[in-house]
Write a protein that binds this DNA or RNA. Sequence first.
DNA 1: CGAGTTGAGGTCACGATGACTTTAACTTGC
DNA 2: GCAAGTTAAAGTCATCGTGACCTCAACTCG
Lengths: 253, 253
Amino acid sequence: MTEQRGLTLAVSTVIFALRPHPDTGRLTLWLPLVRRIREPFRGRWALPGGPLDPADDLATSARRTLERTTGLAPHYLEQLYAFGAVDRSGAVTDEGRVVSVVYWAIIRPDEAERSVVGENVEWQVADEVGAWGGAAPLAFDHDTVLRYALARLRAKIGYSPIALAFLTEEFTLAALREVHEAVTQRTLDPANFRRQVLAAKTVAPTGRRLAGTAHRPPALYRRAVEIPSSDPARVTVTEPTHPADTDPPKGLS
Amino acid sequence: MTEQRGLTLAVSTVIFALRPHPDTGRLTLWLPLVRRIREPFRGRWALPGGPLDPADDLATSARRTLERTTGLAPHYLEQLYAFGAVDRSGAVTDEGRVVSVVYWAIIRPDEAERSVVGENVEWQVADEVGAWGGAAPLAFDHDTVLRYALARLRAKIGYSPIALAFLTEEFTLAALREVHEAVTQRTLDPANFRRQVLAAKTVAPTGRRLAGTAHRPPALYRRAVEIPSSDPARVTVTEPTHPADTDPPKGLS
DNA sequence: CGAGTTGAGGTCACGATGACTTTAACTTGC
DNA sequence: GCAAGTTAAAGTCATCGTGACCTCAACTCG
């Protein structure tokens, strides 16, 4: 193998949590950013992360970053993408070029409350950050990274029960719907949402109800499925093994 | 940044093409493998790849590997995953630990015909390779990697027009259907397939027909959409309320 | 020229979806 | 203590995509 001097492998993490928007009060996506204290991009906001310790797995490194910046362990952690353009918006430094493997994570708001906001760490509204949000661009290519992470989250919540990762053990269907609405930025019909969630069987009623609500008390639910891991080592491979000519036609597209 | 001695970043590529199965004659997925001539895993089959040249983008490196092993340029190239477990099945060598960014590609069979099969390179049937295929395990964690690439391809063909990447400029709907059948290993109803493909408007008739078929001559079609790139830098971010279709289909839960 | 084969277009029942309505169950204001 | 307000929960209805299946079209081959 060649000497790869001038190449550093870093791991960054996009950490999502839902909190009320400071102006509107509506639930929105937040994430912690770190102010850079060194060149390049000194003074600019960046995704938390750092160089990969050769003794750590990639996911372990992401978890460490999460612990370091928020004091928390994620309820969902997934690899987003490996960014490796030669010049990632000035990422070629004295130490050379940087390839970043980016993870994204979901943490629960009740835990985010308790989170320790370290020095140079600040939680900000995801859609108001960087050049896309009308603010100063993030360091490196982190504008692109964040945009991609948001797109992935917003797409994935539509076909995967990851919304549950934003919620505590017991929750109402209204709370689950509010997570979907906050993430997708669309209002949903409560009745239809209920019907679809119950049909998907991803939640089960606990039998208990939430009291003191100034209206009819809603039933409480809990997760009925594990939040799926996207770790390739755990991917279940459905194998129809051999193509049988007798197989009934199925769907497409 | 820390010194990352003992860490190498490699790029490997899973290259898919469709060819008839040697026994059954049915269309199946093939991929080129490289026999390792060095330790570790000397003599075992491995995915083509190599260490990342600090002057190359990640995708550029994947393209180079493709050119080196097949002499071809891909019609589709997408990043699969970054594999970085500390001990990737014996990947810790004298040179230290290896993190691999894996890409997967689609090349057309007519081009694969012309492909130069280099020394120690052999095209093999994807489902009969490695431990999952009942053969000797691939080098490193490449069994897992290949399994994951197959799962991604089989999932993605269901909601993305990547099947077109397996076909030449002009093709019949039957040929397109055979691509789907070969990849998903399911037979499809021709009439329903036609209806859905035409509704998706991913293909358009050329007005020409295929002659000499011993039956009614089928119409020829061409692509009506570009085969989408999954490059995050090119992801279109739909602004106020529309979910980006970065990935899979619709439906809730 | 008829048999065989596949293309092309159509029908039909079913299930999921979105828009909407109705009733239930609680709290708060008067 | 009762009406008003609010949200939960359940149901209705038209529409649309889907899978299963049918019929006719258009070619070659024996």
